[in-house]
């Protein structure tokens, strides 16, 4: 993320006096609790996962070094590839649809509206609800016999559809719910980007006779491209890690129709107790995120307009 510029506090100059030393000590002591948690539950586990990925380990006996055997097993595992593909497909559909829909609604909301705060609040409601809860709500809406969605279909003279029981449709149903749940989050983020676009630009364009459509393409899009790009990247990283919704709605089923990567990883680790393989899956997921981020930066990053 070379474009992310973090403003740094002025750089430290070595010059020691008792007063400075005391500040050092206070500094270290004040980060200590936070750093301890960070070290024990973040840094050390990251390193441990990489190592454990090369072992066979059932949590009870000591890990046995088996080299690359876990990776070999996974690459020969049909369900591993299936979960890999499902996750990529999930992300490829979710990210563009969600981010573009969010952009459209953000543009609609980007006016001087008296009720803007209320609208914003209402739009983030689904995000604030736990995925398990809204997953169950949507399971009810998608219910084949009594669900509201099939009620709408039948009253339009169509057949009932087994949204979550069909192995062709279940993944799309879960993607749909995911788009719905986090849409508001992206709207808020993009709306913040739109609100910092200087109004004078639009006024000048109006004087030059530009219509709304031209203003949207020539001013809005270039001006918010950095934040929109950021939104796409964050969205992608989050979606590749999807777990809660498929777990709550279908538990990977029917068959393996919604068995996304993290669901399979969880199953490997905590149902089959193949901790070594689960760790190598974690490493692969991280690798996937890095590679995907790299490609997005390479192919989309150059089109982003960072001049304001």
């Amino acid at each position: 993320m070379e474009k992310t510029i973090v403003p740094m506090a002025s750089t430290y100059k070595p010059k020691s006096s008792p007063k400075k030393r005391r500040q050092w000590l206070t500094g270290y002591l004040m980060i200590l609790p936070n750093f301890l948690g960070f070290f024990i539950f973040m840094l050390a586990p990251i390193i441990a996962t990489v190592g454990l990925g090369f072992t066979e380990w059932d949590l009870v006996n000591n890990p046995q070094w088996i080299g690359l055997a876990n990776y070999k097993n996974l690459f020969g595992d049909r369900i591993f590839w299936l979960s890999f593909r499902k996750t990529i497909w999930f992300t490829l559909l979710n990210v563009p649809i969600q981010s573009f829909l969010a952009l459209l609604i953000a543009v609609l909301l980007n006016r001087k509206l008296k009720a803007l705060n209320l609208f914003r609040t209402l739009f983030i409601i689904p995000w604030i609800c736990m995925s398990v809860a809204v997953g169950l709500t949507w399971t009810w809406l998608f219910n084949t016999q009594f669900g509201y969605i099939n009620h709408v279909l039948t009253s339009l003279g169509m057949e009932r559809i087994g949204w979550l029981t069909s192995d062709k449709l279940a993944l799309y149903a879960v993607i749909f719910v995911n788009v719905w749940q986090y849409l508001g989050w992206h709207i808020i983020l993009l709306l913040a980007g739109l609100q910092i676009v200087p109004q004078e630009l639009y006024e000048a364009a109006t004087v030059d006779g530009a219509n709304n459509w031209m203003k949207f393409w020539k001013i809005t899009i270039p001006m918010i491209s950095p934040i929109f790009f950021y939104d796409l990247v964050v969205n992608m990283i989050m979606t590749l890690q999807i777990f809660d919704l498929p777990f709550a709605m279908t538990n990977g089923g029917p068959g393996n129709a919604t068995r996304v990567f993290n669901l399979y990883l969880y199953q490997k680790g905590f149902s089959f107790l193949q901790m070594g393989e689960a760790c190598s899956m974690g490493v692969i997921l991280f690798g996937l995120i890095m590679v995907a981020t790299f490609f997005v930066f390479k192919f989309l990053g150059s089109r982003v307009n960072y001049e304001m």
């Binding site: 973040m42 840094l43 760790c279």
Partner: peptide, 22 residues
């Protein structure tokens, strides 16, 4: 170091963290 770990997925730290708690 803190910033560098913010992109690491939760799945990576899950199993060692579980073992530590165990």
């Amino acid at each position: 170091l803190y910033l560098g770990t913010m992109m690491v997925p939760g799945a990576v730290t899950l199993i060692p963290s579980y073992y530590i708690i165990l």
